[in-house]
């Protein structure tokens, strides 16, 4: 992250505190949503959407991904592709009807 001047860093510190506040609010919302009597698919979808937003905030601002260099993005895109394959395995297992 290209932050050289003290002024720049002070501005970023303000952003960190705003992100912290947003993460706290989203944590409360996560627990609040879970206490509602929602159908299981809707509850799972909502919980994962909120977790993804929270994760994106952490990655973007605390891990500085909003202003990172391209080799890091390429590394993460490759990782995301392999991660997607891992998540695809349970789906393949569900669709597998051989021997049934």
């Amino acid at each position: 992250m290209s932050m050289d001047s003290a002024e720049d860093i002070k501005k970023h510190v303000k952003v960190y505190l705003m992100v912290f506040a947003a993460l706290m609010v989203l944590t409360v919302i996560t627990v609040g949503v879970a206490s509602l009597s929602l159908t299981i698919p809707l509850a799972i979808a909502l919980a994962l959407v909120i977790a993804t937003v929270k994760g994106s905030l952490v990655a973007s601002y605390f891990m500085h991904l909003v202003s990172e260099k391209s080799p890091i993005y390429w590394t993460l895109m490759l990782t995301a592709a392999f991660f997607a394959v891992l998540m695809f395995v349970p789906l393949l297992a569900m669709l597998d009807s051989i021997g049934r």
Partner: peptide, 8 residues
């Protein structure tokens, strides 16, 4: 982990 293990 928090929503996946505790809330769902």
């Amino acid at each position: 982990l928090f929503p996946v293990l505790y809330l769902l």
